[in-house]
């Protein structure tokens, strides 16, 4: 049977993989993809938690809270990625580099 342990473990693995990639890869686009991956992990966890707390949520008259949250998150991340990619485009245009180490405008 599928237990919550399984779902959460999957989510944790995906999250860790995304985080490691976002931290260690140097191609800007790949970093964005890794962030996307971290987010997918979060969605999995949200849906899992939603199922886990379903009884309580129904008792509190807030059913489907976790799934609604996941939906909203999907949209937010889509928007975030669109903006992120736009920033990436203009960055590459100006700096002519996809390396994340070159994008250090915030440096003192």
């Amino acid at each position: 049977m599928i237990t919550h342990d399984h779902v959460l473990a999957l989510s944790a693995l995906l999250f860790c993989a995304g985080a490691v990639g976002a931290l260690l890869r140097r191609n800007l686009i790949v970093v964005l993809m890794c962030i996307e991956l971290m987010f997918a992990a979060v969605v999995v966890a949200l849906v899992g938690f939603d199922r886990m707390w379903a009884a309580r949520a129904v008792a509190d008259s807030v059913p489907m809270e976790g799934r609604v949250f996941a939906m909203i998150g999907i949209a937010v991340v889509a928007a975030q990625l669109a903006v992120g990619l736009a920033i990436l485009v203009s960055l590459v245009r100006n700096r002519d580099s996809m390396d994340i180490e070159d994008a250090r405008l915030l440096r003192w």
Binding site: T3, D5, L23
Partner: peptide, 26 residues
């Protein structure tokens, strides 16, 4: 940072109360 990410995942999984409980609603 990687360690922290793993830590977050471990903490969440470890403290989540659903251990061993089957996912309902299928």
């Amino acid at each position: 940072g990687c360690g922290a990410a793993v830590g977050i995942a471990l903490v969440v999984v470890h403290t989540a109360p659903g251990t061993g409980v089957p996912v309902s609603g299928v």
